[in-house]
Design a protein around this nucleic acid. Structure first.
Length: 352
DNA sequence: CAGGTCGGACTATCAACACC
DNA sequence: GTGTTGATAGTCCGACCTGT
């Protein structure tokens, strides 16, 4: 979805910019946090039960919580998974949601063809302890002056049906889920409103903030919601209470006591729901793959076995790059193929 | 079995075109 | 000037391979 809008609307301005403008942490933290207040929904009574005297239950109200840098806001304990007006991509027609790409993968991830994220060092590099080499590559400039043949104009739909894809409610952010068109969900509509004034980010993504350096966000690989959950199952994964140590000078935890205070006054071990479902200490990346996330495209490919030819693609890229822009070659922390120290290929260590 | 490798599907970007 | 098309550059999924 985040990319749906990007795709359909192109590089148009977002009416509701997301992610919002990020404010740098004070006191030397290099990460950022959104500069707007964060709310959580609170039911008037503790049990979410019906109102007093048997009257209809009062609607939940929003309470602001201190959006302090360094805090992550998972789902409050006992609260159902939040629903947005743009629910996770409907699992209908068995199509998987569009893949979301980062603008620029770090050299290590690009080299390993692995998912990267916007943070630097990225999650993967942190995991492998190669933060120092987690740098952005240099994006090659697009060629210009290439002549093209005449374009075949697609016949305009002329207002016919199907001309506009965003007809079934995925066109616009409509607020905090009041119009959630998912009556089948057993969850009460939108008990948790994460950031009510902004559209949801990527489908199924719950807004949360970058933790201070060194902390791990609850979701792996940029997706707080495991992929399998968003597409296949209607039930979201169980979220684990989660908290990180705030930077100095901020609330150690929300004043309303929504979350338990950190133990020892220091960092509470972060628990990733994905990892939690697994036994332990497994690298999230491979583990999630191997535990068989939802079958997706069913893509099969024949592989002629490992041979030296397999590197032709990247080798070629390296050649082109080295020939045209020999800048930054293997400098910065160098080359290092994160996972292949022996391979000093300039491929992504510098190019790209 | 865990983790690395990498082919190729998929996505984002943007210059060239087409149209008003 | 604005919208559309389509090629390019890049990301990363997931099958395959290798080492322990």
């Amino acid at each position: 979805m985040a990319n749906d809008q990007a795709k359909s609307a192109g590089p148009v301005a977002h009416e509701h910019p997301y992610p919002p403008t990020m404010t740098p942490y004070p006191q030397g933290f290099s990460a950022t946090y959104p500069g707007y207040p964060v709310y959580i929904a609170q039911h008037p009574d503790a049990n979410h039960a019906e109102g007093a005297n048997g009257t209809a239950p009062a609607p939940p109200f929003m309470i602001p919580i201190a959006a302090a840098p360094g805090m992550l806001y998972p789902y409050p304990p006992g609260q159902p998974f939040p629903q947005f007006s743009q629910p996770a991509p409907p699992a209908t027609n068995g199509q998987r949601p569009k893949r979301k790409q980062v603008k620029m993968a770090c050299t290590n991830c690009a080299n390993a063809c692995k998912r990267c994220d916007e943070a630097r060092p990225c999650e993967r590099c942190v995991k492998y302890g190669i933060q120092e080499s987690c740098i952005d590559g240099v994006r090659k400039e697009r060629q210009k002056g290439i002549k093209r043949g005449p374009y075949k104009r697609k016949n305009k739909p002329a207002g016919g049906e199907g001309s506009f894809e965003a007809t079934n409610g995925d066109s616009e952010w409509q607020g905090n889920g009041a119009s959630s068109s998912n009556p089948t969900s057993s969850q009460a509509p939108t008990t948790v409103h994460a950031i009510p004034h902004y559209p949801p980010p990527a489908e199924g993504y719950f807004p949360y903030f970058f933790p201070p350096p060194g902390f791990i966000a609850p979701g792996h690989e940029g997706a707080p919601v495991p992929e399998g959950a968003s597409s296949g199952t209607s039930q979201p994964p169980a979220m684990v209470q989660y908290y990180t140590m705030p930077p100095p000078g901020y609330f150690p935890y929300p004043p309303s006591g929504v979350f338990p205070p950190p133990q020892n006054g220091s960092q509470v071990p972060t628990i990733d729901p994905i990892d939690a479902s697994r036994n332990s200490n497994q690298p999230a990346e491979t583990a999630t793959r191997r535990t068989g996330d939802a079958p997706t495209t069913g893509k099969k490919r024949s592989r002629a076995g490992k041979n030296t030819e397999t590197k032709t693609k990247k080798a070629k890229a390296a050649v082109t790059v080295t020939s045209e822009s020999s800048i930054s070659g293997g400098t910065v922390g160098g080359n290092d193929r994160a996972t292949d120290p022996g391979n000093n290929s300039p491929v992504d260590g510098n190019d790209a």
